[in-house]
Design a protein around this nucleic acid. Structure first.
Lengths: 114, 114
DNA sequence: CCGTATCCGTGCCGATACTG
DNA sequence: CAGTATCGGCACGGATACGG
């Protein structure tokens, strides 16, 4: 990564770069909430996400050490995703993000009703 | 926004959608740290960001009520950016993101130094 | 100093079909 | 069930030049 060249004094940029993309935070949040979740279940939760997109983001998250992939060689096949220990350290951020969104939504509600 | 149609039960998606883009979190963080900052100073801090990009993201953030823009009709002109009250409510998330990045960076350091 | 205008590349993301 | 292959659109972001 060319991170430290340009932004060595900016840790938040490291975080943003590591978890870039439209879906990654949501994926991480789902994993945090569900602990363990199968591929199709995750896909269901995130529809209308495309397979290609979900698959790729999961792979990147796995490569970055944030997500663990456990494959069972059964028929039909079963694959379960969960957060790694490092991934779990994001939990406070995920919770705050969710809370912030909820507050903004309820505020917007007041604006409408109020 | 088509948010509530598809993701009404997922507040974190609201947050992500609101603060989308490669730079927005970093911009918000800088504003949070500096309280008030002039355009060119911000641009300096975020180089190699392009003017077009910085300008647009600032406008979007302003339109979303997260950033306040104060213009002084002097010569030479002066424009100062700061967080709105709503923008300030993101402070805990920004701090956590920065801390998380710092931890990951120092961990990576340990891996190297062994 | 503080941006906008213009032009353009690229890479993210989606749809659909197909495989082990 | 759990993905990959292929194709393509389009919006995001960058470089540069110019305007108030």
């Amino acid at each position: 990564m060319d991170f430290d060249v340009k932004f060595g004094n900016c840790p938040i940029y490291y975080t943003i770069s590591k978890i870039e993309g439209k879906w990654k935070w949501v994926i991480l949040y789902k994993l945090h909430k569900c602990k363990v979740i199968r591929y199709n279940r995750l896909w269901d939760e995130l529809k209308p996400i495309a397979h290609r997109t979900l698959s790729r983001q999961l792979k990147e998250l796995e490569a970055d050490g944030l997500v663990h992939r456990e494959q069972y060689n059964e028929i039909p096949p079963r694959v379960e995703y969960s957060l790694t220990l490092v991934g779990e350290t994001l939990a406070p951020i995920l919770e705050l993000m969710s809370e912030w969104g909820a507050e903004q939504l309820s505020n917007a509600q007041f604006q409408h009703d109020g």
